[in-house]
Simulated assay, not measured.
Amino acid sequence: MKKENKIKLGISIGDLNGIGSEIIIKTFEDNRMLEFCTPVIFASIKTMSFFKKHFKSNINFHGINHTDQIVEGKVNVLNVWKENVIIKFGEENVKIGQYSVKSLEKATEALKTEAIDVLVTAPIHKHNIQSESFKFPGHTNYLAEKLGGESLMFMVTENLKVGLLTDHVPVKDVPKQITSELIIKKIDTVYNSLVKDFRISKPKIAVLGINPHAGDNGVIGNEDDNVLKPTLEKIRENKKLVYGPYSADSFFGSGNYKNFDAVIAAYHDQGLIPFKTIAFGHGVNYTAGLNRVRTSPDHGTAFEIAGKGEADNGSFKEAVFSAIQIFKNRTEFETISSNPLKQRPKKI
């Protein structure tokens, strides 16, 4: 029987002055990780050797110049640049930000052409990456343009999954962005991801209100009554198990989220504050809806501790394992869908 090749897991380096290098090294200096995947770091062997020396790590890197040189059982480093880069941990630097863009672009190209199977992105600094040629507020928007599908920021752990109707937009613009069409599209994306990527056959989804107390019947804004509620009724007509809108202030504290497979928040902080309060350090940011798998840790560059050896790699490691499992789940789902005879036997 032919040995199955390990999943090729691409890693974009993120901001070189942040904690990305540290959490990558801490994760893969444990050789047991190579039993689950073949990592490919998009950076440069010179830069990664600097990080290895700085953090006094025993990790061994394998430098390559093309994806066809990837070696299983090694921590591969694909040379995206060759020049020496001066690292100043904790410093916000636009020039350094451009290296994170180069890494992301090369990794995305490899993902698109299937030279790698999945992508895990280390944290970037959203201001540092801006330029005339790169005007995206973050990974999600960039990947949505470069890869096919409907992207959605989906924060996930085993027991809590939170999707967003709107992500990196100013709070003042949230109400006008939430249309019936958007709600239907985002709920469909979450629903399909739960079925294909997490193998939940009949997902139960809760939706949080846009306004405090879901508008209190129009007393605190009319967006919930005029847009959200009728749209959810329309969705329920298609037999999807979608509930709400729920008042966001008590939904998580009461433990009600435990009754659902996913929760959809109206805007960034409404969903991410409770998610990170409950799951910080173990959560994963997954871009649902794309035709490729991308995950990242649930935190940022953490400039305040960069270079000090204090960074916790727990969330990054979870992002690695999540990417691997989602890829396997999706592959199995697509195999079963294309050949009904391979469906799992029903339990009696």
Results as ranks from 00 to 15, higher is better:
Phe136Ala: 05
Glu35Ser: 05
Glu91Ile: 09
Phe42His: 15
Phe28Thr: 06
Asp117Met: 01
Ile59Cys: 02
Asp68Thr: 08
Gly90Trp: 03
Ser57Gly: 08
Asn65His: 13
Ala115Trp: 01
Ala122Phe: 02
Gln98Lys: 15
Gln69Glu: 14
His54Val: 00
Phe51Cys: 01
Met33Glu: 12
Leu78Tyr: 03
Asn65Gly: 12
Lys46Ala: 12
Phe55Met: 04
Leu34Lys: 03
Ile129Tyr: 12
Asp68Ile: 05
Lys126Thr: 09
Ala43His: 11
Ile45Gln: 14
Val120Gly: 05
Glu91Tyr: 09
Thr27Tyr: 01
Glu132Met: 01
Leu104Val: 06
Lys56Cys: 03
Lys46Thr: 11
Thr108Trp: 06
Met33Lys: 10
Lys74Cys: 07
Lys56Pro: 00
Gly97Cys: 14
Phe50Gln: 13
Leu104Glu: 07
Val101Leu: 13
His62Asp: 00
Val94Gly: 03
Glu105Ser: 09
Ser49Lys: 14
Ile124Tyr: 13
Asn84Pro: 00
Asn65Lys: 12
Lys135Pro: 02
Lys106Thr: 11
Leu34Gln: 07
Lys52Arg: 13
Val40Trp: 05
Thr47Gln: 10
Phe36Leu: 11
Ile64Ala: 04
Ile87Ser: 12
Asp30Lys: 10
Ala107Cys: 11
Phe36Ile: 00
Ile45Arg: 05
Gln98Phe: 12
Lys56Gln: 08
Val120His: 06
Gly63Gln: 10
Glu83His: 14
Val118Asn: 06
Val75Asp: 02
Phe51Tyr: 12
Lys95Tyr: 13
Glu132Thr: 03
Val120Met: 09
Asn128Ala: 15
Phe42Val: 11
Asp30Phe: 00
Val77Met: 09
Asn65Arg: 12
Phe134Gly: 04
Leu78Gln: 03
Thr38His: 05
Glu29Val: 04
Pro39Val: 02
Thr47Asn: 15
Ala122Pro: 07
His66Ala: 14
Ala110Arg: 00
Asn76Leu: 05
Glu114Leu: 03
Glu83Asp: 15
Ser49Pro: 01
Thr108His: 07
His127Ala: 09
Asn60Ser: 12
Asp30Ala: 04
Leu119Glu: 05
Ile87Gln: 14
Leu34Ala: 03
Lys106Asn: 10
Thr27Leu: 02
Ser57Glu: 07
Phe28Asp: 02
Leu104Thr: 07
Ile41Glu: 07
Val40Lys: 03
Phe36Tyr: 14
Ser49Thr: 14
Glu114Arg: 13
Val77Gln: 08
Lys52His: 03
Val85Asp: 13
Thr38Gly: 08
His66Gly: 11
Gly97Asp: 12
Val40Gly: 10
Lys74Glu: 07
Glu35Lys: 11
Asp30Ile: 03
Met33Pro: 11
Val80Gly: 05
Ala110Gly: 08
Phe51Ser: 11
Thr113Gln: 06
Glu72Ala: 09
His54Asn: 02
Lys82Trp: 03
Lys95Glu: 15
Lys56Gly: 04
Ile116Gln: 04
Glu105Phe: 04
Lys126Met: 10
Phe50Cys: 08
Tyr99Arg: 14
Val85Trp: 12
Ser49His: 08
Ile87Lys: 14
Ile70Ala: 02
Ile96Gly: 13
Val71His: 01
Asn79Cys: 08
Lys106Gly: 01
Lys102Ala: 10
Ser57Asp: 11
Pro123Ser: 09
Val101Lys: 12
Ala110Met: 02
Glu109Val: 08
Met48Tyr: 04
Thr67Trp: 02
Met48Asn: 05
Asn58Val: 03
Thr27Val: 02
Gln130Thr: 01
